[in-house]
Amino acid sequence: MITLRQVSRWYPGSTTDRSRVLDQLELDLKKGEFLYVIGGTGAGKTTLLRMLATEELPSSGTLSLFGYDLSAVSPSTLRTIRRSISTIPQRVQLLSDLTVFENISMAARAAGSRASGRDSRDRIFELLEKLGLSAKRDRPASELSGGEAQRVAIAQALARKPELILADEPTGAQDPDSAWGILDLLLRENLSGTTVMIATHDREMVRRVRKKTAFLKNGRMQLHVEEGPCRF
């Protein structure tokens, strides 16, 4: 599903090896897998997720999603790929004019959801219930706290029924109970066949829910393949 071959990323004016954000990454992630990407601040986690979300292209190397080399896809194929991916960004930006429900339903519709209006609505209501946002359903997104906005972004991601979820610090703005609820939701999606990649600082989460883990440091990636405890 995701293949990275010698993928590097640097920004204009920073072409030396030392200033590369990502350096010669190699990764194979199959459908239905769950991967943590951990690393310190500036390690390149967000850049990696932005590339996988098709927001950026690698400066060198090959990045393939769903078997398509992203450097050579047509706009229509890119749209199809994007419809299969849900991103939970670190900095959530909801559409402030819309209600919580409208923000989620718009994300689902943009993904070309073929579900009927009622099915789609029921799915959104169910997600809002699980994320503790039922009471905020018809409130404008501008009235939400940071943690609530992040949970709406998670509902947006899940309502789209994607094949790949890319979550950048999805529990960063949550209290412990909410954080575990969110992780539980993501694990359930993974069990139903969705590939999940989570970039996180939260080592406690990684220790308690053992999954495949990639460690990013100075733009380089070390993969801890076994699903078990790992030492950082």
Binding site: A53, T54, E55, R79, T80, I81, R82, R83, S84, T87, Q93, L95, A107, A110, A111, G112, R160
Partner: peptide, 11 residues
């Protein structure tokens, strides 16, 4: 801030 997310969602 509207067109960007819509495009990333595959619109």
């Amino acid at each position: 801030g509207i067109a960007g997310p819509l495009r990333l969602w595959g619109a």
